[in-house]
Design a protein around this nucleic acid. Structure first.
Lengths: 204, 204
DNA sequence: GTCTATATCATGATAGAC
DNA sequence: GTCTATCATGATATAGAC
């Protein structure tokens, strides 16, 4: 489960499945297309993963993990709020620049049956990690170093500015009239833009 | 195309199709389920809309229009930036609170073949409307009333904070440990939270 | 306009040879 | 392990009675 650069058949399947599932989602994905991309046939595909569901679970589990792992690690460490925010922005933007279709995939599938997926893939791994973030924010507010703000809203704002452009890319490009090159250019600047935006918004 | 409270068969179909397509997406939607929800049978469904594609186009066109119309109207009017931002936030949050599944649906489907959908449904309706927003921002910067910022990033930040929570709701609820009631409560406060956050972030 | 029945096709999955 | 059939199901779409 999740070997990286092994060129075995199983690995070829996982890579093919990832690309197809990410692009088309569970419902739109075809076992035939996955087999083709892995340069094998459907029979062999079912030999390695007995069902489409089983294959999907493998892919989705990896995606969810990649999507959540950063947040967990950072939220739970005991560093000043400003550093925490910078780490989250940098860590996430970094990961997303390499996995631009990841959040759309996770969000789309997670939405089909939230409870089921959460129960299946996140066995209580994320619990009161978030309370550590709330504490950090509250501490800064109490000390008068930032203006009063509900930590949950701050978190939503941050995570929204980071993730949404990747998810809503086509819409943004249409409305703002951006071609691919312009969009990519903006994405590279965005790390610093977001950090500054948040910092300014929090000034006491 | 797009009559509202007419209880004809066509209207029942459109309402049923909207709910099913929004919830399951094109690939996950079943003509049978739409027929059931509209209390008719598949034969009649195909009598009104000759194919699943045709029915989907009707639904998606309406969704895209609802999603884009507000922005257009507001961006193109000639009012001060701060009012423009407030109008966008209020208008969107208002619309989204009544159509919470809309952005996810549009984003997911738009992504499957961006160019095709845009060519089909947005015949140049959005053009240089956005340049009016850029001008507004630049004017404020030049006058020293807000700090320098790339208007495109400002736009992304704004639209992200508005839309993302609706799209990424399950993920946010998991990470932040929010139950449905808490989440809905936050969504109601959010209008003012976002406006203030932006205002602070733009202070000269 | 509305229904039932059926044609047609695509897909996930299995069986069995090599 | 890998391949070539083939099955079984379920979905869109159509035909035709009422």
């Amino acid at each position: 489960m999740s070997v990286k650069s092994d060129n075995s058949t199983e690995q070829k399947i996982l890579e093919a499945a990832e690309s197809v599932f990410h692009e088309k989602g569970y419902d739109g994905a075809r076992m035939q297309e996955i087999a083709d991309k892995a340069s094998i046939n459907k029979g062999l595909l079912h030999y390695y993963f007995k069902s489409k569901d089983a294959l999907f679970d493998a892919i989705f589990g990896m995606a969810l993990k990649r999507m959540m792992s950063n947040i967990n690690a950072i939220l739970s460490t005991d560093i000043p709020l400003e550093e925490k925010i910078d780490l989250i922005v940098d860590g996430y933007m970094n990961m997303l620049s390499r996995n631009s279709s990841l959040p759309r995939f996770v969000i789309m599938e997670l939405n089909k049956d939230p409870d089921r997926f959460i129960a299946k893939h996140l066995n209580g791994s994320i619990q009161n990690v978030f309370s550590s973030f709330i504490d950090s924010v509250q501490k800064e507010i109490d000390a008068g170093r930032i203006r009063p703000i509900d930590p949950r809203h701050l978190f939503m704002n941050m995570i929204s500015m980071i993730i949404f452009p990747y998810v809503g890319r086509p819409m943004i490009q249409v409305v703002a009239g951006l071609d691919n090159k312009e969009f990519q250019g903006l994405m590279q600047e965005r790390r610093e833009v977001i950090k500054l935006f948040i910092k300014q918004a929090l000034k006491a």
